[in-house]
């Protein structure tokens, strides 16, 4: 059976195209401040047909190796089903958003708030500053760069595009840093000569890759910009944080005479069953 599987994979690995256009680049010292923006979000109370999420948007800024900016904004969102739509109210922002389903509502809110933060930050930065964003960026400006940790991009053969390009690039420019343009302001980039990984980067200017490389030499994840690692850490909604928020909400509601446990139990039952099924 596995033999058959391998044969199928062979079909994916058929060489239909050979990437050739790899360009080497050099490390560049940053001139201005390099910022990283990232958000984290999670449902902290699930009432079955409605839920509350917590969303955090973090910003860090580095001048060389020194962190000069670190801030975090916290939001809550109440999502509920109205007819066919999910409407979400963001607090303290006040905006109301629509989503397709309840589970994803907090992700939509997070994406929106991240983009808003990037816009705000951009208006305050100078020309030498760079803003790194986790994932594709909606706001594309000369000094805004999106770094995608994962990509489902597919080559014609069916292979992972990043996998394919990494293989050829690493062989052709061994021990070097390089980029490969895939069009549409998107590149596959190797940010550290020793890194096993490449990332898809969205940017208007490939001149910034050298600065990204400067920040990608930290041993925690060699080849990935350190400011993004740091901002991910501070913006993440952690498991115990979730529990704490959940208790806080239930306690405050109880003081107002609202018992939320019944709704939550309905939802938990559903998720308990889910967990069993997928086990």
């Amino acid at each position: 059976m596995l033999k058959e599987l391998i044969n199928e994979i062979k079909n994916i690995y058929v060489q239909k195209e050979i990437p050739k256009e790899f360009f080497e680049f050099q490390l560049l010292e940053p001139k201005g401040i390099v910022y990283a923006v990232d958000g984290g979000s999670s449902i902290i109370f699930d009432g079955g047909s409605w839920c509350i999420s917590k969303i955090k948007v973090g910003v860090v800024g580095y001048k060389g190796k020194k962190r000069v900016v670190e801030k975090i904004k916290t939001f809550y969102a109440l999502s509920k089903k109205d007819n066919e739509h999910i409407t979400t109210k963001i607090m303290p922002e006040g905006k109301i958003m629509k989503s397709k389903n309840l589970e994803d509502a907090h992700n939509d809110v997070r994406t929106f708030l991240e983009a808003k933060e990037v816009k705000e930050l951009y208006s305050k930065t100078s020309a030498d500053d760079i803003i790194l964003v986790d994932g594709p960026t909606e706001v594309l400006k000369k000094n805004i760069v999106g770094v995608n940790k994962t990509s489902r991009l597919r080559a014609k053969s069916g292979r992972s595009l990043i996998g394919l390009i990494n293989e050829f690039g690493s062989k052709k420019l061994k021990g070097k840093m390089w980029y490969y343009e895939i069009g549409n302001n998107e590149y596959i980039v190797k940010l550290h000569p020793k890194s096993k990984f490449c990332y898809k980067i969205t940017a208007l200017s490939k001149e910034l890759f050298g600065v990204l490389a400067y920040f990608s030499r930290d041993p925690e994840i060699v080849g990935y910009p350190y400011p993004l690692i740091k901002v991910d850490k501070i913006a993440r909604v952690k498991e115990d944080e979730k529990k704490m928020e959940n208790n806080k909400i239930k306690l405050m509601a109880k003081k107002e005479g609202l018992i939320l446990d019944y709704d939550e139990n309905a939802a938990i039952m559903h998720s308990l069953l889910d967990k069993r099924m997928y086990r």
Partner: peptide
């Protein structure tokens, strides 16, 4: 080899 530690 050249590594840099951020927030060391």
């Amino acid at each position: 080899e050249d590594f840099e530690i951020f927030d060391s």
